[in-house]
Design a binder for these strands. Sequence first.
DNA 1: GAGTGGTCTAGACCACGTA
DNA 2: ACGTGGTCTAGACCACTCC
Lengths: 251, 251
Amino acid sequence: MSEGQQRTPLYLKVAADLRTAITAGEYGSGAKLPAEDELARRYGVSRGTVRQALAALRTDGLITSRRGTRRVVLGAPRLHSFGELRSFTRWARSLGEEPGGRVVALDRVTANEEEAERLRLAEGAIVYRVRRLRTLSGAPVMVERTTYPERIGELVAGMPLDTVSYSEQLELHGVLFADARHTIDLVRADEDDSELLGCPSGEALLRERRHSTDPAGTPVEWSQDRYLPGTVAFTMQSSMATTALGRRLSQ
Amino acid sequence: MSEGQQRTPLYLKVAADLRTAITAGEYGSGAKLPAEDELARRYGVSRGTVRQALAALRTDGLITSRRGTRRVVLGAPRLHSFGELRSFTRWARSLGEEPGGRVVALDRVTANEEEAERLRLAEGAIVYRVRRLRTLSGAPVMVERTTYPERIGELVAGMPLDTVSYSEQLELHGVLFADARHTIDLVRADEDDSELLGCPSGEALLRERRHSTDPAGTPVEWSQDRYLPGTVAFTMQSSMATTALGRRLSQ
DNA sequence: GAGTGGTCTAGACCACGTA
DNA sequence: ACGTGGTCTAGACCACTCC
């Protein structure tokens, strides 16, 4: 018997069901969720599976939890999936905006010290540097400077210059993104930024630096994105239990 | 027999042990961790406990994981604990810097619309607005505007004006912080910011807005912090499995 | 095919909150 | 005292990777 269907884990189905129930307002903000045992009975699964589902909602910031009382609904979160976070294109689409992009430069070079370290390559290894201007409904929003290791850069270099989403294309080629580390701070626009974004040189920009790895832990991308003021805000959720967020001194 | 000792969960001990082993360099970046069964045997715990420990390292961005292969070490993360993230004082101390603060204004007022919504209070409820200048080793770094619900504001108002850490004092009074939602973007310094921070009016500042709740899900704080450029960077970790991070359009 | 992580179950005991 | 979530165990089966 062929089982063509992709099986979703049980706990994800439970989580999805609870998530829709919450966002549909079945539990108001501040309401109490049913007990774990009750949910287990209701969904016909074990308590462990329910706990796995609830943990997912917890890290999304949808609910609290503490020993001794029922879980409490915090409210709808409006955070983004990993895909929307990683891909400008997906993010734009999820907002109903029309994403655009234009490659400004694409170079095949030997990695400098920082690139080699970030991408965990030997010094002098080949990398591809891509600079792109990203637009939202035609208006310039962000300048993206990305360095790819050779294997992935080759794929990027082979794509048409007007490719809207590299991420999606790369995924079609089997390049998977699994983890990312982000740093957000403020920088001044240099001459290139100023020309591309149409802002004064020296203007403050919101900068996100992103270091992504595939499921095997191999670095696949090292990027530096600079956003015009007023175009973007980053949001995140942290909790006593799970925190993957920090604050650093600059540089 | 009295058991005076506070018991730490087993899985946290295992996680701490693995964390130190990793940061001590026992596993180089890119190295493979022992299998779950092996770790379970080594620590004398069940596989479930090992998995709980590994999950913690995963959300810290220390390791990857995928079906079929051993977990791979990504490297030392340098993210902060929830406490260090929430408290300017704790953060500063963890860097070896000397935190300071000065209360600029403390008002007992009726909540405006935004405050009422954020703190989930009825419109017209009493809140406390506190404005403080925060310093690092004497140098101005950040202006903090915080709104507290009445119950907590009363505690804050009763503290000496030179109290360095409200957070720690509040915890001593039994006020616990459990979850927080953060938004990071860029704003222009207004007259007050400019005077306190000693920067030109209109200067770009890095802004963090923070909305914290206690373990019961009750809002305890709504704060807006404005950092001088070049003093701070925010870092975070996201992964395909667990993402509590997003990107929004401004406002 | 062997090894490994992902999912799931069933049951136990404990720590905390509330009444 | 009781209900609830947090921790922990033991065992099962599956999906994936790599040899």
